[in-house]
Lab assay of single mutants.
Amino acid sequence: VDNKFNKEQQNAFYEILHLPNLNEEQRNAFIQSLKDDPSQSANLLAEAKKLNDAQA
């Protein structure tokens, strides 16, 4: 993981990586967004979790 991520951002990265119901395309999009703007990690994680739950 890129060293410019802080602890919260790293946690978001790993959580998104391991959400079971996202397809690869969705997962990659969230990860790319996280890399583009790490400050949005909490929002991105919340969105990813919502999508993950919706696809459960």
Rank of each mutant, 00 (worst) to 15 (best):
V1K: 07
V1E: 14
D2P: 02
D2K: 02
N3D: 15
N3T: 09
N3E: 08
N3Q: 09
K4C: 15
K4M: 14
K4Y: 10
F5S: 04
F5T: 07
N6P: 05
N6A: 03
N6I: 03
N6E: 15
N6H: 03
K7I: 08
K7C: 11
E8M: 02
E8R: 01
E8K: 02
E8A: 03
Q9C: 08
Q9P: 01
Q9M: 02
Q9L: 10
Q9D: 04
Q9E: 06
Q9T: 07
Q9I: 06
Q10L: 09
Q10G: 03
N11Q: 15
N11A: 14
N11L: 14
N11G: 09
N11R: 15
N11K: 12
N11M: 15
A12W: 06
A12G: 02
A12P: 01
A12Q: 03
A12Y: 03
A12I: 10
A12S: 05
F13P: 01
F13Q: 06
F13W: 11
Y14E: 08
Y14F: 11
Y14G: 02
Y14H: 11
Y14L: 09
Y14I: 07
E15H: 15
E15S: 15
E15K: 15
I16F: 04
I16H: 00
I16G: 01
I16R: 00
L17G: 05
L17R: 11
L17N: 07
H18A: 13
H18E: 08
L19A: 03
P20D: 09
P20L: 10
P20S: 07
N21L: 07
N21T: 05
N21P: 00
N21C: 13
N21Q: 04
N21I: 02
L22T: 00
L22S: 00
L22Y: 00
L22D: 00
L22M: 04
N23S: 03
N23H: 11
N23F: 13
N23M: 14
N23E: 06
E24D: 10
E24K: 11
E24G: 10
E24F: 08
E24W: 14
E25A: 13
E25L: 14
E25R: 13
E25G: 10
Q26L: 02
Q26T: 06
Q26E: 05
Q26P: 00
Q26V: 06
Q26G: 01
R27D: 00
R27K: 05
N28T: 05
N28F: 15
N28I: 13
A29K: 12
A29V: 13
F30C: 02
F30N: 00
F30Y: 11
F30P: 00
F30I: 02
F30A: 03
I31W: 06
I31T: 13
I31S: 03
I31D: 00
I31E: 02
Q32N: 11
Q32R: 14
Q32C: 15
Q32A: 13
S33L: 04
S33Y: 03
S33A: 08
L34K: 00
L34N: 01
L34I: 07
L34M: 06
L34R: 00
L34Y: 04
L34F: 13
L34E: 00
K35E: 06
K35P: 01
K35V: 09
K35I: 05
D36H: 12
D36L: 15
P38L: 04
P38I: 04
P38Y: 02
P38R: 03
S39T: 08
S39M: 12
S39L: 10
S39H: 12
Q40A: 08
Q40N: 06
Q40L: 11
S41D: 03
S41Y: 15
S41K: 02
A42H: 12
A42P: 07
N43I: 14
N43E: 11
L44A: 02
L44N: 01
L44R: 06
L44T: 08
L45W: 08
L45E: 03
L45F: 06
L45T: 07
A46I: 08
A46N: 10
A46F: 14
A46M: 13
A46H: 12
A46R: 04
A46S: 10
E47S: 11
E47C: 15
E47Q: 13
E47M: 14
E47H: 06
A48G: 02
A48N: 00
A48I: 01
K49R: 10
K49Q: 09
K49V: 09
K49Y: 15
K49L: 11
K50F: 14
K50Q: 12
K50P: 00
K50N: 09
L51A: 11
L51Q: 09
L51E: 06
L51D: 02
D53T: 13
A54V: 10
A54M: 12
Q55E: 11
Q55L: 14
Q55I: 13
Q55N: 12
Q55R: 04
Q55G: 11
Q55H: 06
Q55P: 09
A56T: 13
A56Q: 12
A56E: 13
A56Y: 10
